[in-house]
């Protein structure tokens, strides 16, 4: 074969000087970033209008690997930071890219309130069912009976069903895919860009080093095969029925797609109602570094 003058299409979206990344062999976070980059290519979105915010954890590292305006916040505070970013500069497309531990445990409060206010954020939550970076402790998303470093006899706690949680709190777009569903995930991210309001995409991802190893579920590839075999696409499925178990069926698909006024339109309407003609829209914040 001849030497080809071609480069990887996702390369322009990555800080290649930081590769290879720190994620373990068989971890699915890289695959989700790959799908995210392809969604950016497909949607032809202006990269200058994008800002990506991550919290702490394995998925939190995404902010350091993408060649976008990005910020790696303190633990659990990705959504509050992103909220401020969006309110100060409403023209930005703000993406929150973080893990289940960061978003639903320490940042759980922010997650439900951002969904309640319907702040125009695109949240991509990579759910590996465990606190991976800190050594594999039980997370709020760990399914029942799973063995973790803090539950050596199996966890007895019921787990969060994240699509159900954010739907109940008020999100306008809720989808779930696994790292096996790469095309669907990329399409879903593209759809979320079109929505105005709080969009939430959960991506189930393997953690071969901590979750799969301790539970004797094989490696990353075995988990991908399990996703292929046991996942069922059910668009519009009631989110109350999509809870996860350790080895059972995984319901994936687009569960919620609805419209509701977002925070900024509500704020504007309220101010106009109260102040009438005297209300002056705040001027746009201009970044001094541009």
């Amino acid at each position: 074969m001849t030497i080809l003058d071609v480069t990887n299409p996702v390369e322009p979206f990555l800080r290649t000087d930081r590769m290879p990344h720190i994620w373990c062999p068989g971890c699915g976070i890289g695959t989700t970033v790959n799908c995210f980059a392809r969604a950016l290519i497909e949607s032809k979105i202006d990269l200058q209008s994008l800002a990506l915010v991550s919290g702490i954890g394995c998925t939190g590292r995404v902010a350091g690997y993408v060649k976008l305006d990005s910020f790696h916040t303190t633990h659990g505070r990705a959504i509050p930071f992103a909220t401020g970013l969006k309110l100060a500069n409403p023209k930005l497309n703000v993406i929150v890219y973080s893990g289940d531990g960061d978003l639903s445990a320490i940042g759980g409060n922010h997650l439900i309130h951002a969904a309640r206010r319907n702040i125009d954020l695109k949240v991509i939550c990579v759910n590996n069912l465990i606190y991976a970076m800190t050594g594999g402790q039980t997370a709020p998303t760990t399914p029942g009976h799973a063995i973790t470093s803090t539950s050596p006899y199996g966890t007895c706690e019921p787990a969060f069903n994240l699509p159900h949680l954010v739907e109940a709190a008020g999100a306008v777009y809720v989808a779930r895919w696994t790292t096996f569903h790469v095309k669907q995930l990329a399409r879903s991210i593209g759809e979320a860009f079109q929505k105005k309001g709080f969009s939430f995409i959960e991506v189930i991802s393997p953690c071969p080093t901590l979750y799969q190893r301790r539970n004797k579920l094989g490696d990353g590839l075995d988990t991908m095969k399990y996703y292929k075999e046991k996942s069922k696409v059910k668009h519009g499925a009631p989110t109350s029925e999509v809870g996860l178990t350790m080895t059972g069926e995984i319901i994936v698909g687009k569960f919620v797609d609805r419209d509701r006024p977002d925070y900024q339109s509500l704020l504007h309407a309220q101010m106009v109602e109260s102040l009438g003609e005297s209300y002056v829209e705040p001027s746009e914040t201009v970044c001094s570094c541009s």
Binding site: N8, P9, P20, G30, N34, V182
Partner: peptide, 14 residues
């Protein structure tokens, strides 16, 4: 599809 699955951005098809 290899390119989309690759978690390490190490392969792609064209």
């Amino acid at each position: 599809l290899c390119g989309m699955y690759c978690p390490d951005f190490a392969i792609y098809g064209q």
